[in-house]
Structures are given as structure tokens and as C-alpha cells.
């Protein structure tokens, strides 16, 4: 007993936890994954910088599919419902998640969106994350695959600057390739080389939402996700060569 105030002495108790800080998010993500799986929904987490062309790619995807697949979307933004409105105009049922100050979506936000009316009567649910190359990368949402949109106007070295985002990507969509003629000196091989240094199974599809280039290849990749046993892209190790950065 403490002699000054009688409060009682304390002893130190050490508790070994060894638990991921995101364990709570992981549990909700697993719950979401169960929702998606049981309804036969292929969920994708679409990430990328603001303005990388995430919404435009989804619009082009809807145009390409022309109703042959059922699409749905959840669109995260700090403010406004603009992306969700654009997607609805493109024929994709979409629910907006306005995050306020949060720079990323987490599994709980997606869970709420699903209960707030995001359509699970879909073959593909696109979760369009908040435009940001940092924070969204570490939050599992329950998706089957991570797709990162990287526009050619962002330069060739983004993968080296944001390795966490690209390490977790299953596919990188190199967007706005219709602008390449205007970008003197832009080297697609340099982007591929940068990706190969941060992404163990680099898979890149060059697309243009405007011209439609690459959209068929992207849709074929999406179809591959629905083939049992092919949830992961096959290793593309052989033939990847190092390119020196001059």
C-alpha cells in the first residue's frame, strides 16, 4: 500500500500480443469477401492517383461489355458524388462513399456501402478507391484483386516512389496511352522495368478509355478472374530483363 495516499502499488504486467494493427479491418474484409463469394461477385479494388483515369476506365469497360456482364460499383471520394453519377450514367449501378477527410476506403466503409444498397446482383463489383497512391494500399476491403491505374502523364518512376501500392497490385493499367505521341521521350519499357523492381509478378495492360485501345485485353483479364483456379495471374518471370536507368 502506498504510504502517501493509500492508492496501492502497481506492478508491471507484460502482454505479448503479436497482432496486426489492421486485424479489425482484416476481419471485416474477410466478412465482405464472404458476402462477395457467396453471391458470385468478383470484387476489385481499383486504386490510383487522382485523375489517373479510374472512372473513365470503368465507363469504357461498360461501353465495351454493352450489358453482356452485370457491373456494379462503389466509388470513394473525399467530397461529392460525381464519380458515382458518372458511373450511373454509363449504366453501372453505383453507390458513393463520401469519406470526408479519410484518404482511403476501409473494409467497414465498403461493408456499410453494401448494406446501403450497393448492388451485389453483379458479376463484377468495382470498388473505386479514393485517388491516392499511398494510403489505400494497406487496407484489405475483401476484394479478389487489386488493380492500379497509372496514367502515362504521371511519369515513368511512380512505381519506384510508391512501392507499397504497386507491390500489392495484381494488375497495373497504364492509362491514357492515346496521349503518348504528345509525351516526347516517355518510355513504356522504363515503366515496365520500374514495376519489375517492386512487383514480383508484373502485369501491365496499356489502355486508353478514349480510343478503346487495350480495353478488350483488360476485359479478357477480368474474365480470367472468374475462371476457378486462375484467381492469380500466372508468373511472367521468364523474359523480364533489367533496363538500366540512364
Amino acid at each position: 500500500m502506498c504510504e502517501d495516499c493509500g492508492c496501492g502499488d502497481t506492478r508491471l504486467v507484460s502482454v505479448d500480443v503479436h497482432e496486426r494493427l489492421l486485424a479489425g479491418n482484416d476481419r471485416t474484409a474477410a466478412h465482405n469477401r464472404g458476402h462477395f463469394f457467396s453471391r458470385g461477385v468478383t470484387a476489385l479494388n481499383l486504386m490510383g492517383s487522382p485523375g489517373a483515369g479510374k472512372t473513365a476506365i470503368l465507363e469504357a469497360t461498360a461501353r465495351h461489355l454493352g450489358g453482356s456482364r452485370r457491373l456494379a460499383a462503389v466509388a470513394g471520394d473525399l467530397e461529392t458524388e460525381r464519380d458515382a453519377e458518372r458511373l450511373r450514367k454509363a449504366g453501372i449501378p453505383a453507390v458513393a462513399i463520401t469519406t470526408g477527410s479519410a484518404c482511403h476506403l476501409d473494409a467497414e466503409m465498403v461493408h456499410r456501402a453494401v448494406h446501403d444498397g450497393a448492388s451485389l446482383e453483379a458479376d463484377y463489383l468495382f470498388i473505386e478507391n479514393v485517388g491516392n497512391l499511398v494510403c489505400p494500399a494497406i487496407y484489405d476491403l475483401g476484394q479478389q484483386a487489386n488493380v492500379v491505374a497509372l496514367s502515362v502523364t504521371e511519369g515513368e518512376d511512380k512505381p519506384l516512389k510508391y512501392p507499397v501500392m504497386f507491390r500489392n497490385a495484381d494488375l497495373v493499367l497504364l492509362t491514357k496511352v492515346d496521349l503518348l505521341p504528345a509525351l516526347d521521350g516517355y518510355d513504356v519499357a522504363a515503366v515496365q522495368d520500374a514495376l519489375a523492381r517492386v512487383m514480383p509478378r508484373p502485369r501491365v495492360i496499356a489502355v486508353s478509355a478514349r480510343s478503346g485501345e487495350g480495353v478488350a485485353e483488360w476485359v479478357a483479364w477480368l474474365e480470367g478472374l472468374r475462371v476457378p483456379g486462375e484467381l492469380r495471374p500466372a508468373p511472367l518471370a521468364i523474359g523480364v530483363r533489367e533496363v538500366s536507368h540512364g
Binding site: G8, D9, T10, R11, L12, V13, S14, V15, D16, V17, H18, E19, R20, L21, L22, I138, V164, R167
Partner: peptide, 16 residues
């Protein structure tokens, strides 16, 4: 290299 882990908590617990 990707660890984000709560390893240990040390608590002050009253003796009683």
C-alpha cells in the same frame, strides 16, 4: 518488410 504489428503492451496493474 511489411510488418505492421502490435507486439507488446506493458500495463500498470494495481497490486490488489
Amino acid at each position: 518488410g511489411d510488418a505492421l504489428v502490435l507486439e507488446r503492451i506493458e500495463l500498470e496493474v494495481p497490486d490488489h
